[in-house]
Amino acid sequence: MNIFRLLGDVSHLLAIIILLLKIWKTRSCAGISGKSQLLFALTYTTRYLDLVTNFVSVYNTFMKVVFLAASYATIWLIYMKFRATYDQNHDTFRIEFLLLPVTILSLVANHEFTLIEILWTWSIYLEAVAILPQLFMVSKTGEAESITSHYLFALGSYRGLYILNWIYRYYMESYYDLIAIFAGILQTVLYCDFFYLYITKVLRGQRLQLPA
């Protein structure tokens, strides 16, 4: 554990809590992509299967359980409790265009051809692109509420901080995982355009509105 990873995890946790609280407090999931949240739930489910096979640390187990629970709670809020507020007409990204390449890539580029390892790899590749339906929704409606943009900023910062963690681990522990690094860089790059808008608009008190 180093400071970059800890900050990354905190940022990830913050993002998930911001989203849950936003939906709960406003009693609405308007502007939130249910598809992205489904992809994140799939990501955590396939990645954290090792919860039942091997123990890493109390911290590790605790965070995994929180991420899983929060993710399923979010799905429940969007698709069950506040279903009437779900903006289905704007959540039109075709996720099969993500699932197909992610599945093929995980079968081809993995560390070991075993079920648990392939599911881990699948989750890493899927996480990298899971935010696309959400970003697509923001670009389609041309705007995002500021609380939604805080969520996206925290979520994007998480993988960015993980990159610093990987650089640190490479030098300090001679540890590196090319699959995680490749997918993590892709994931962070996907947020770049959003980061630019967040810093130039939201932080200056303006609404996140895309140029027409």
Partner: peptide, 10 residues
């Protein structure tokens, strides 16, 4: 690279 399943990150 990784011999068995031992990913320690989230």
């Amino acid at each position: 690279i990784l011999q068995s399943f031992k990913h320690d990150e989230l």
